[in-house]
Design a protein around this nucleic acid. Structure first.
Lengths: 254, 254
DNA sequence: GGCGAAATTTGACCTGGATCAAGGCATCGA
DNA sequence: TCGATGCCTTGATCCAGGTCAAATTTCGCC
């Protein structure tokens, strides 16, 4: 009856959602077993996106909203004269495509940073869905507000912080979010280019490169292309907080 | 029976909401006459705030959310080391205090820019209220998403634009919002200090001052303390769009 | 395995806007 | 009328980070 190639049938496991590795991070985590099974029937799946592939673009009519299932994506809005502004990086469980629901037109573009897949909720059922699962609506809203606060924090980053502090904040933010996903908070691979980081932080790519190598010289982090190892969290936090006790160690060999 | 000093009783006018000058801008605009009357009974009112007075502060438990009834306010979040980041300026009809509903704790502080008043919706009834008035929930969400998009646009402003372009965008934004409120889009009074503008735009106060006087010399605007007159919208837009055709006219007397 | 494009790093130099300093000008309370 | 105070402007100087240029590494792809 179920023709999904990956379908598994056990006594209590009847839905892909139940087997999902991102289950606790998904907004569907608020549903009970019974609800989850019904929810699973509604959710659509798409063939995975390759790096650089776009899920949707700003200006397109909203046909669905999505939950990132695996991989990672960046979202960006178009600036007046061509160059875009990256507004966020997203990991499994994150809701994608809710900006723009007001006018039913996407305001941002979503692009895969690596091979990624999403679960799809058709927009025209969305109201029916949240009516069927009231707790889902609440969970969705929790997500929206969390994102809103993250964006406000980013306003502070862009409005007030020096390049050093921006990078420190960025690394700590990525680290903490990866930790939430059960990954190491101290050793990880960045999934975005230096260009993406620079764009997101309102800096030049050269500045990003220079600050990272300086952090390395100061033995706060080790960095080799995409791989990052945070060696001294307290000093990294000190840089972010502008506490001054994290400087030096640059060129003065003791 | 109604001891409000300003109460007016006509055949069809039975609620303060019906007389409200900000009625079309309020989220209650989605309610019909009957609903509006019932809604009016739920809404609380507060004595007006004076300039500088705070409605609530970051960290406080959320007891209510508000709709700005008259005046104007700024919202700001606290930065790590003291200096705040203004996240927005708000006008009548704007919803205040929805950030932070996730954890039921305010994430931002709201401060009156002039004598202002708000309508209050107690947070513990909020769920009951939106159940009673389903269209209200939708309207509230529309507001949230609009605000979210405004914040994303501000990320672009802070991440990508030069000082000139930030000021141009700021003036155009304020102008368009005042227009929505039935006020002149070309002549208006700023309700915030230069310091507030500088903080909001991630600039030094001196830069704000200098750019505004330069715009004046270029005959794009006239500005005298708080009063602004936009004389040439197309050139102001050109500055925002970095179109270059708006420069000169600075010191070269023809 | 080698070619070409893309990503990253590093150095040299320059500039937009910050910082420092000082003065002007409304508003307000006594 | 007179400080006192807060807000704003203007000038001089400085520097964090942008821009330009070039070398190096990596990686997809034939």
């Amino acid at each position: 009856m179920n023709n999904s190639p990956k379908a598994v049938k056990l006594q209590s496991v009847t839905s892909a959602c139940q087997l999902c590795h991102a289950r606790e991070l998904c907004m569907a985590s608020c549903l009970n077993e019974n609800e989850l099974e019904r929810f699973d029937n509604i959710v659509g799946h798409r063939s995975p996106m390759e790096r650089g592939e776009r899920l949707f673009m700003a200006g397109e009519k909203i046909k669905s909203i999505y939950v990132l299932h695996s991989g990672s994506v960046k979202t960006y809005i178009e600036s007046v004269n061509g160059d875009n502004q990256i507004t966020g990086f997203h990991f499994p469980g994150d809701v994608i495509g809710i900006h723009g629901v007001e006018n039913k037109v996407h305001t941002d573009t979503v692009e895969a940073l690596e091979t990624s897949s999403v679960c799809e909720l058709r927009f025209d059922n969305l109201e029916a869905i949240v009516e069927t699962f009231p707790s889902l609506q609440q969970e969705l809203m929790r997500y929206v507000f969390r994102e809103m606060n993250h964006e406000q924090e980013q306003l502070m980053v862009l409005g007030k912080l020096t390049a050093d502090r921006r990078l420190a904040h960025f690394l700590l933010d990525i680290s903490s979010r990866l930790k939430d996903h059960g990954l190491s908070e101290s050793k990880f691979n960045l999934m975005m280019t230096r260009n993406d980081i620079a764009n997101y932080l309102g800096l030049a790519i050269e500045t990003v490169s220079r600050v990272l190598t300086r952090f390395q010289k100061q033995e706060i982090i080790e960095v080799d292309r995409r791989s990052v190892h945070i060696r001294d969290f307290s000093r990294l936090r000190a840089v972010y907080q502008d506490a001054d006790l994290a400087t030096d160690n640059t060129s003065c060999s003791a």
